Computed example of a mutant assay.
Amino acid sequence: MLFDAHAATLSPNEQFVLDLVIVTVAVASLIFTDNKFNSKKPGLIFTILVVLAISGRLLLNPIPNVQPVTFLVIMVGIYFGISYSIAFATIVTLSSNVILEHGIWSNYQIIGWASVGILAALLRNQFIQNEKLNITNLAIFAAFSGFLFDWIVSLSILHNVDTSFFLIYLLNGFFFDLLHVVGNVVFVAWFANPLSELMNRHTDLTTPKAVPELASN
């Protein structure tokens, strides 16, 4: 007797849990097998992070405003710098929106995530201290970034409504902003340390030290 394996179905919650497990296993596999790569060039890891961001955003789409992109662009900004974070924001947004739907908001999403990545790069010294990742500072910034990104994207409604409606729109969306904030903090707690170790092997965060001038006689 033949069985149609493809006829099996899962509830949305079961499918979500399964997808989450798959993503977790994929990330864990990446982290534990990356010891084979010693190159300081971030191209390979950057590409993998882009794929993880796109797939994670699509898999978590059923949960309103919870996705790993904000957390990942912060990490890209910290470890790979401004240029990579802008590229990351652009590629992830345009690629995932092919499935999720494009619109004027896509431009604001790129600006929002790029802004988060740029700020993370500029504030790198607040996150990397004594060659270790400061999880507390990272979590605070990730929470702030949830609001920052959402508010930047919300500017897209001004193409259709009067500015007087903008504050009301932000207040109505505050609960969804909180979901983004909580999601970011959870991603920091869950993935920040192992991902930091992975990315640190593919970049050089050493900063040039100031050389004191010799006193003239």
Rank of each mutant, 00 (worst) to 15 (best):
V161K: 09
V161Q: 08
D162W: 13
D162P: 06
D162L: 13
T163I: 14
T163Q: 11
S164V: 13
S164F: 09
S164D: 13
F165G: 11
F165M: 15
F166M: 05
F166I: 06
L167S: 13
L167N: 04
L167Q: 08
L167W: 08
Y169S: 14
Y169V: 12
L170S: 05
L170W: 06
L171T: 06
N172S: 12
F174Y: 07
F175H: 01
F175P: 00
F175M: 09
F175L: 05
D177I: 04
D177C: 03
D177K: 05
L178R: 00
L178T: 00
H180S: 02
V181S: 05
V182T: 14
V182C: 12
V182F: 15
G183F: 04
G183A: 00
G183H: 00
N184E: 08
N184L: 08
N184W: 02
V185P: 07
V185T: 09
V185L: 04
V185D: 10
V185K: 10
V186L: 14
V186P: 01
V186I: 15
V188K: 04
V188L: 01
V188F: 00
W190N: 02
F191E: 12
F191N: 10
F191G: 11
F191P: 09
A192W: 07
N193P: 04
P194Q: 00
P194W: 02
P194D: 02
L195H: 07
L195S: 06
S196L: 04
S196I: 06
S196Q: 03
S196G: 07
E197I: 04
E197R: 12
E197D: 09
L198W: 09
M199G: 06
N200I: 04
N200S: 11
R201G: 12
H202P: 03
H202N: 06
T203D: 03
D204Q: 12
T206L: 08
T206F: 09
T206A: 07
T207C: 06
T207H: 11
T207F: 07
P208C: 03
P208T: 04
P208K: 10
K209P: 02
A210F: 12
A210S: 09
A210P: 00
V211T: 03
